[in-house]
């Protein structure tokens, strides 16, 4: 029987210690990065936040000359464009997922699925220039005049469609975001629909339900958590998107009731103004915007991840 050379064994142990600490350090580094981001954002934002206090998030004014800054317009723009994106992308993503899981002929399933996912791989700056050069003129010449003429005088929602047709603005940004977020939502929903045990669906069909009824009454309730998780993941992405929005938002630090008006979002304000911000309060206000965005997206993404993990664990438990 061979006896293990103790020196060899000792060397192996040393290598083990080195390897283990290397991987541990790498893992801890990930934690440190996020912590570092949070800390550096807070430090950078502190001058603005302490100077303005709560009024930073409640005022619309953004005047670099008099050093008066308020985040209300970017926050409004971020929220509204993301809301429009969700309103458009969720039903569409749901429809695509439905099509792919229930209706699609098996031969086409793969290619169409891949095509939709390829949309996710297109870098956001491409969406930006496509939005500015292709979508905006179409919106300016055809869609927006139609909206103004037909919906501008409607009760309740009329106020949303007033103003000159610029072509760019909050609505355009929302539409571009919707197209960007669509593949994520569609892919997540499709994956979630796929995890439904065929047994459950067969039972539904066996009782005489139509395809739609099975989807709505069996698949959706079963994948509720995953659907919400996917939606929130898409929302997190829409909230933080920079380049696609910057091209078509119109760069106006104003809040306007009309969706056709230009506005600004947190990320496009930072992208546009950061390199030129003169003065500590200006730079600090922009970093404070970044901190707000970090906080908002962190909350949304964290909630989404928690939900998706719950679904994974449920799936693993064989539900």
């Amino acid at each position: 029987m061979a006896i293990i050379d103790p020196r060899h064994a000792a060397k192996q142990l040393i290598y083990e210690r080195i390897f283990r600490s290397a991987t541990l350090s790498a893992a801890v580094l990930v934690l440190l990065i996020l912590g570092g981001v949070a800390v550096s954002l807070v430090r950078g934002a502190w001058p603005a936040l302490s100077h303005f206090g709560f009024s930073f998030v409640s005022r619309e004014i953004w005047n670099p000359v008099t050093d008066q800054f308020g985040a209300l317009a970017p926050i409004y723009g971020t929220v509204v464009t993301s809301a429009i994106a969700m309103l458009l992308a969720v039903p569409a993503g749901f429809g695509i997922a439905l099509f792919l899981t229930e209706m699609c002929p098996p031969l086409l399933k793969r290619p169409i699925g891949v095509a939709v996912e390829l949309l996710a791989a297109v870098p956001s700056i491409i969406f930006g220039i496509w939005g500015l050069f292709v979508l905006a003129p179409v919106l300016q010449r055809h869609v927006q005049p139609w909206l103004i003429a037909h919906l501008g005088h409607a009760p309740f929602i009329g106020g949303l469609f007033k103003g000159p047709p610029y072509g760019i603005g909050i609505l355009t940004a929302g539409v571009v975001l919707a197209i960007m977020v669509l593949p994520f939502i569609a892919a997540t929903m499709r994956d979630v629909f796929d995890t439904v045990p065929p047994m459950l669906k067969e039972s539904g069909y066996g009782l005489g339900a139509t395809t739609w009824e099975v989807i709505w009454n069996v698949v959706v309730p079963h994948s509720r958590v995953g659907i919400v998780g996917g939606i929130m993941l898409g929302l997190g992405r829409a909230l933080g998107e920079t380049m696609a929005v910057t091209f078509v938002i119109g760069n106006a630090h104003r809040i306007s009731s009309s969706l056709l008006a230009p506005g600004t979002t947190i990320s496009s304000a930072i992208a546009n103004e950061f390199t030129e911000a003169v003065g500590d309060l200006y730079t600090s206000s922009l970093i404070a915007l970044g901190l707000l965005l970090f906080f908002i997206t962190f909350t949304v993404i964290a909630a989404a991840q928690a939900m998706l993990r719950r679904l994974e664990r449920r799936g693993a438990a064989g539900l």
Binding site: N63, P64, V65, Y166, I168, G169, G250, A252, R254, P262
Partner: peptide, 10 residues
């Protein structure tokens, strides 16, 4: 060098 324009696109 930077003013608050009440209308228009930036």
């Amino acid at each position: 060098s930077s003013v608050q324009w009440p209308v228009g696109i930036g």
